[in-house]
Structure formats: structure tokens, C-alpha cells
Simulated assay, not measured.
Amino acid sequence: MLDTTTTRFSHVKPGQTLWRGEGLRDFFLYRDLGVADATNGQVIAQLVKANSAPEKGTGWHRHEAQFHLVYMLKGWARFMYGDQETLVEAGDMVHQRPGIVHFLFDYSPDMEYLEIVGPADFGTVDVEGPCPVPAPGAWPAA
């Protein structure tokens, strides 16, 4: 049976939540979609977009999460998942299995993705990488 006592209905319109720089990475902006509050921290849904050009990327890390989904809305990003380079483009969806070691090392200036993670207060642990990472490309001059 569905538990309706620990979660609430939520409806967030564009503009009701603002882009903010206070998130996991200072080179991204984040926009909360109200799901963490509605689920009492069981799940977070947020939009993530590029804020500045990639210099060093995210570094090798893994998340302490039970579920992690990335759906690319605009642009593209290049990840290393273990020793596998993966290009994620607009319309692509990635399910990051729990504990997968990865590195986001390059992305387009218009990159924007939807991220859904459970639990909402998931942890991030820096780790040693299994292989070298390609250098990011240069962004076009503004």
C-alpha cells in the first residue's frame, strides 16, 4: 500500500525556485524542484547547469546513494565511468548504479540536466581513479 503520510504533493513552476551557486560543484548552478521537501529527504530532484568552463572537472568520486539518475536536457557532458569514456547528450538518460566511480571532465556551455537522487542528502566521496582522464575542450570565446 502506498504511504501517503510521509510525502506531500508538490508542484513547482519555473521561476518559483531560483538558480543558485551553493551546490556540490562551484562551476555548476542548481535549481531545486521541491521534491526533497515533499518527500522528507527521501529523494532530491534538481536541475543542474554549466556556470563556467570546465578546468579540472569533478575529479574521481562516487556517491553514497541508493538511486541516481541523470537526464540530459540541453548540450552534452563527457564522463568517465570506471575506465569507460561516455558522451551524454541531450535526450540521453544515465542510471548511475550505487557506488560507481566516475568523473565528469568536459561539458558544453549550454549543458543542463535533471538529476534525481535518493536519498536527498546523498554523500560524495573522492576516490583514486582507475585510469587517466582526457583533457576538457576549450569553450568558444564569448
Rank of each mutant, 00 (worst) to 15 (best):
L114V: 08
D106Q: 08
L114P: 11
F105L: 13
D106W: 10
V88T: 00
Y107G: 13
L104C: 15
L104T: 14
E112T: 12
Y107H: 15
L114K: 12
R97S: 02
P98L: 03
E112L: 12
A90P: 04
D110V: 12
T86P: 06
V94L: 09
H102M: 10
F103H: 14
L87E: 05
E112Y: 10
T86G: 01
H102T: 09
D110K: 15
L87H: 05
V88C: 03
M93V: 07
R97V: 01
G99L: 02
R97T: 00
G91Y: 03
V101T: 11
D106T: 10
G99D: 07
P98H: 05
L104E: 15
V88I: 07
R97H: 01
E89S: 08
V101S: 10
R97D: 03
D106L: 08
V94P: 00
V101A: 13
Y107S: 13
E115Y: 07
D92R: 00
L87V: 06
L114W: 10
H95F: 06
I116S: 09
F103Q: 07
E112M: 15
I100V: 09
G99P: 00
M93P: 00
H102E: 08
P98C: 01
V94W: 01
T86E: 11
V88S: 04
P98M: 00
M111F: 14
V101F: 05
I116R: 07
G99A: 05
P109F: 14
L114M: 14
Y107N: 13
M111K: 12
Y113V: 10
M111V: 10
P109S: 14
V101D: 04
I100M: 11
A90C: 06
R97L: 03
H102R: 12
A90V: 07
H95E: 03
Y113R: 15
P109G: 13
F105P: 10
G99E: 10
T86F: 07
E112A: 11
G91I: 05
Q96Y: 03
D92W: 04
D106P: 06
M93K: 00
Y107M: 15
P98R: 05
V101H: 08
H95S: 04
P98D: 02
Q96W: 02
G91K: 07
E112C: 12
G99V: 00
D110A: 12
F105T: 08
E112D: 11
V94N: 08
E112V: 06
G99Y: 04
P98K: 01
D92P: 05
T86Q: 06
G99H: 02
Y113W: 15
E112R: 11
L114N: 09
G91M: 02
V94E: 02
E89Q: 11
D110L: 12
E112H: 08
Y113F: 14
D106F: 03
Y113G: 13
Y113L: 13
P98Q: 01
Y107E: 14
M93N: 01
V101W: 06
L87Q: 01
G91R: 09
D110Q: 14
D106Y: 03
